[in-house]
Design a binder for these strands. Structure first.
Lengths: 342, 342
DNA sequence: TGTTAGCACTCAACATCAACGAGTGCTAAC
DNA sequence: GTTAGCACTCGTTGATGTTGAGTGCTAACA
C-alpha cells in the first residue's frame, strides 16, 4: 500500500487538528473540514489504511485516531509548509535582545525568556563551547593570602573564573604583571597555541613553575570541558504544565527533574551535525523519561568558529511549524546580536 | 477557655501526625498513641475545644482534624523541641560545601542542592547584598572598539561585570593603567568612600570625565540595586511536587511560576530583622499564590558586615523541626566556608 | 467533676450500573 | 470508487447504594 495524495492530505489534517486540540480525531471532524468533499465513511477507510501503515494510533476502538511518532516524522520532513513570523513578532523578539549594556550571558538569558514566551514551550539555550573561542584577557586578582581569583575573558565576552593558589609573597602588583604577561602571551591564540606558549614559559621561568602549571590546568579545564551549569539557560520551565499530556503530576515531576540536571540537558540539545534545524520526536531523543517529548534545536554563531545551541522542549504534539520558524529566526537574531561583541 | 497541659500535648500529637501523613487526624489515632491513656471520647472533647479556639480545622464533619495556621504558629513558637542533626548528616553537608576550588557562586550552588536534598523541599539562597561589601579589584578589559568589559571583584570573591563604552583611542595598555588606578583608589572602601573618591577624580581628570562617570554609575548600579537574577539560586524545584498538597497541576504551576521570578523570590526570602530563624506560615508570607506554603529562612555571613539568606519553601504542613535544624546548621557552615575567602 | 461507653449521624470515598454518544468497521447499494 | 446504513465498542457521565472513618451527644460511672 502506498501513500497517495489524498492520504497525505488526510494525515496532514489529522495532525493539524490533533496539534490544536490534543483530542483523538474522528472521521467526521475531518470530512467537515474545508477542502474535503468526502463522506466520513470514505475518510474512515483511508484512516484505516493509515493506521495499518503505522501513521495513526487508536487509543481504543471507539475513539478517533492519534498521529504516531512516525506521522510526526513524516510531517516535519515532508508535509509541513514553512510559516513565517509576522513583522510584529520579529520586531518584538529583536527588541528584547538588543540591550547594549547586557553581556553575553544576559543576552542568552533574555533569549531563553523570549523563546519560551513566544512558543509557550520550555526553552533551553546552551552557550558556545569555550574550546572554540580565543582568550582575550587573563587577570589574576588577589582575594586572600596565597589565593587568587583567575578571570578569563574570551572573545565572545564570556567571563570565566576560578580560584587558584599562588606562591607566598606575591602581592597585587606581582599578580598584575603576571596577568599582563599572560594576556600578552595568550591573547587571540587557539587553545593549542596556548599550551605551546605555556611549555615555553615553563622552561624559562623555573621559580614560578607551580603557579604557571596550575594556571594552565585551570585554563584547559575551563576551555575544554563541556562547561558548567551556568552555560545552560532555561526559560519557561513551568510552561509544559499547561498541556494536558502533563496534567499527571508524576510526568511533570519527571520532566522537571530532567530540567534540573544541566548536564543531561546540555547533552539533549547538543547538535548532531551542521544541520540548520534538528528535530527529535519522542523516543528519538534517547531518554525514556522524555518519551513523549519532542526536542527541536537550532544553532547560533558567535564569531566565525564557535556556536551554541538553542532549543525547545515540548510534547510530541508540538506546533512544529511555529517552533521551527521561531527557532530559525531566533538563531539568526542571536548570531547577529552576539557577533557585535567581537 | 485556656490551653492546659493536656490540650498542648494533644495538639502537638495531632500536628506531628499530620506532618507525617498529610491526612486528617482522628481521635482514635491520637488515643492509641503512646503516652495517651484517654479514650477517644475524651480526646474528642478536647479536640472540639481546640477547634473552637482556632487551632484545628475540620475539612468536613465526618473527617478528622487538621492543624490550622494558628496551630503551626503555636507549634513553632512553643511546642517544638529542637532536633539535632546526626554527626553523619553534618559531615555529609560539610563535605559538599568545602571544595576549595569553587568560587562563592559555586559554593552557594552546592549549598542550595544539599539543602533541598536533605530537606526534600525547595531551597532558595540569596547571595549577600553587594552594597555591604568592599571592592577588591576593578579591571577594564577591551572587548571591541570603544567597548570594554568592566569586572568588579568584591571582598567576598563575588565577581560582577558589565559592558561599558570607552572613549576612542584607548588601547589595552591605557585600560590597564586606568584599572590599576581605579583599584588603588577604590579598594577596601565602602560605597560612600567610593563615591567620594570618584568626585575627586572627576575634578582632576577633565578629559576622561565620560569614562569615569559611566564607570561610577555602573559600580553604583551593581552595588546598590537588589542584585540580578544570578544572586538567587534555587535547588530542588521539583521537590514540592512530591507532596500531595501539590498533586493538583494548577497549584504546581502557580508555584513554579513564582520560582521563575527571581525578584519575587528574593523579596520572599529577604529577612525582616536580625533574628536567627524566620518562619512565615501560609498567608504570613504575603503572596496569595503561596497561601499554603511556609517559608523558613536563616541567614549567613560573609565577613563581618554583609549577609545573605538561605531558605526553604514547602507546604505549611512542613517538618519545621527538621527544616530549622538543617537551616541553622547550614547557615553556620556557609558562613564558615565563605568567610575563608576573605 | 472529669472520664468513658454507646449510639445515632454525617459525609467522603468507592463501587456498581445504566444511559449516552462519539466513533468505528462492515456491508450493500449507488 | 464512494457512500448510506447499521450494529457494535467503549470511554464518559451521572445516579445510586454501600462502606467506614470519624464526629457529637447523652447517660452512666468513678
Amino acid at each position: 500500500m502506498q501513500l497517495d495524495e489524498r492520504k497525505y492530505r488526510i494525515l496532514q489534517a489529522i495532525i493539524d487538528d490533533y496539534i490544536m486540540t490534543a483530542m483523538p480525531v474522528g472521521s467526521r471532524t475531518i470530512s467537515r473540514k474545508a477542502g474535503f468533499s468526502f463522506s466520513p465513511a470514505t475518510i474512515r477507510n483511508e484512516m484505516s489504511d493509515l493506521e495499518e501503515l503505522g501513521y495513526l494510533d487508536q487509543p481504543h476502538t471507539s475513539a478517533g485516531r492519534v498521529p504516531s511518532n512516525k506521522a510526526y516524522r513524516l510531517y516535519v520532513d515532508h508535509l509541513m509548509k514553512a510559516a513565517k513570523l509576522s513583522p510584529d513578532e520579529r520586531e518584538r523578539i529583536h527588541d528584547h535582545l538588543i540591550d547594549k549594556s547586557k553581556r553575553v550571558e544576559g543576552v542568552i538569558r533574555s533569549a531563553a525568556d523570549v523563546l519560551s514566551d513566544t512558543t509557550k514551550y520550555t526553552s533551553v539555550i546552551v552557550a558556545p563551547k569555550l574550546g572554540t573561542l580565543r582568550i582575550k584577557h587573563v587577570q589574576l586578582v588577589p582575594v586572600a593570602d596565597r589565593t587568587a581569583l583567575m578571570i578569563i575573558v574570551t572573545s565572545a565576552g564570556i567571563v570565566k573564573d576560578a580560584v587558584i593558589r599562588v606562591p607566598e609573597g606575591l602581592d597585587a602588583d606581582d599578580l598584575y604583571s603576571i596577568s599582563r604577561m599572560l594576556t600578552q602571551k595568550l591573547a587571540d591564540k587557539p587553545l593549542e597555541a596556548v599550551r605551546q606558549a605555556f611549555s615555553e614559559m615553563l622552561r624559562n621561568a623555573e621559580q614560578s613553575r607551580r603557579l604557571l602549571g596550575e594556571t594552565l590546568s585551570v585554563i584547559e579545564k575551563k576551555l575544554e570541558t563541556g562547561g558548567d551549569a551556568s552555560d545552560v539557560v532555561i526559560g519557561g520551565s513551568s510552561n509544559l504544565l499547561e498541556y494536558p499530556e502533563y496534567s499527571d503530576v508524576n510526568k511533570a515531576r519527571n520532566f522537571l527533574a530532567v530540567l534540573e540536571s544541566k548536564d543531561t540537558l546540555r547533552q539533549l540539545v547538543s547538535r548532531d551535525g551542521g544541520m540548520e534545524i534538528t528535530i527529535r520526536i519522542g523516543p528519538e531523543n534517547g531518554r525514556p523519561e522524555l518519551n513523549d517529548c519532542s526536542i527541536v534545536t537550532a544553532s547560533y554563531r558567535v564569531g566565525d568558529h564557535s556556536n551554541g545551541t538553542l532549543g525547545i522542549i515540548g510534547p510530541t504534539r508540538m506546533n512544529y511549524n511555529r517552533v521551527i520558524s521561531v527557532l530559525d529566526f531566533m538563531g539568526r537574531a542571536l548570531s547577529d546580536v552576539l557577533s557585535e561583541y567581537r
